[in-house]
């Protein structure tokens, strides 16, 4: 199952992303920008028809697993099961193996394991597995800052917009911007990553946050970076925010950038 998710997510771009790209291919004022978006749509078509990865960077296998607390997992180690799936999927699907076992000596593991797994216990009797392959180019442009609470909403906006500005052409714009606000340092980072599993074109459940997402998106698209940084009004396709309670002294903000290959596939068991 994990193996199939790896291949699905890497080779078949979601309808939600294709719909937005098709809309932006018309809206973008820059001729170069439109040409680039057209190339991306054509590219997604080839990848889909031939079942080859849309991007050679088939990413770190990031796996979110929400386990219903009434479920008992038996017959082996869950992490081993996930890693076996990643190994099979990345081998069978001709996906690139991009993982090095030690960040310092940098020897490739040869099968794209280990995955980065985030487990969460939730009510119920189902298990939801979301696989989100994450490319290195956009991951490298991500950032985290512990703001002062007094910096408030303006400070948050500035930090998110500056992160996208500094990233410029490097994370393969048009990007999707995941933002985690609140919690602790690691909680904010995890929320920013998880925000990148929300389908494009969906509203935030919280009305004020939804407004904030739209405001930040508008500001980002005024930067002029455009598709692939070659100029234009389509720098980001969406901004997704997740929030959590935080300490009276803290205002953590994490920004995780996804390239236009906004890839994730989920299955519920």
């Amino acid at each position: 199952m994990v193996a199939d998710l790896c291949i699905e997510a890497n080779c078949h771009l979601g309808e939600d992303v294709l719909n937005v790209l098709q809309k932006k291919a018309v809206e973008e004022k820059s001729v170069t920008g439109r040409e680039i978006i057209q190339q991306l749509i054509e590219n997604a078509g080839i990848a889909d028809r031939e079942e080859i990865p849309m991007c050679q960077d088939t990413g770190v296998a990031v796996v979110f697993i929400d386990i219903g607390q009434e479920v008992a997992l038996t017959g082996g180690d869950l992490y081993d099961a996930v890693n076996n799936g990643v190994k099979e999927g990345y081998t069978r699907g001709y996906l690139r193996k991009s993982m090095v076992m030690d960040p310092l000596d940098r020897v490739n593991t040869g099968d794209n394991t280990p995955a980065v797994v985030h487990l969460k216990l939730v009510p119920g009797d189902r298990v939801r597995v979301t696989l989100a392959p994450k490319g290195g180019g956009s991951e490298n442009m991500s950032s985290l800052k512990m703001l002062k609470p007094a910096e408030g909403i303006e400070g948050i906006k500035k930090f998110v917009i500056d992160t996208v500005k500094v990233a410029g052409p490097n994370p393969c714009p048009p990007v999707v911007v995941g933002v985690g606000i609140g919690g602790t340092m690691e909680k904010a980072a995890l929320m920013a990553k998880h925000a990148l599993t929300r389908p494009l074109g969906t509203k935030n459940d919280d009305c004020d946050t939804d407004m904030l997402e739209k405001e930040i998106l508008q500001e980002i698209n005024k930067l002029g970076i455009g598709p692939q940084g070659m100029g234009g009004a389509v720098t980001a396709l969406a901004v997704h925010i997740e929030k959590y309670a935080t300490h009276i002294a803290c205002l953590p903000v994490a920004v995780n950038i996804s390239c236009h290959a906004y890839r994730h596939k989920a299955v519920i068991i």
């Binding site: 054509e42 590219n43 080839i46 031939e50 990865p53 849309m54 991007c55 050679q56 236009h260």
Partner: peptide, 13 residues
């Protein structure tokens, strides 16, 4: 020069 990042399937042709 820059090629379009992420257009890997297309460029490989």
């Amino acid at each position: 020069f820059a090629a379009v990042g992420g257009a890997a399937a297309l460029l490989s042709r």
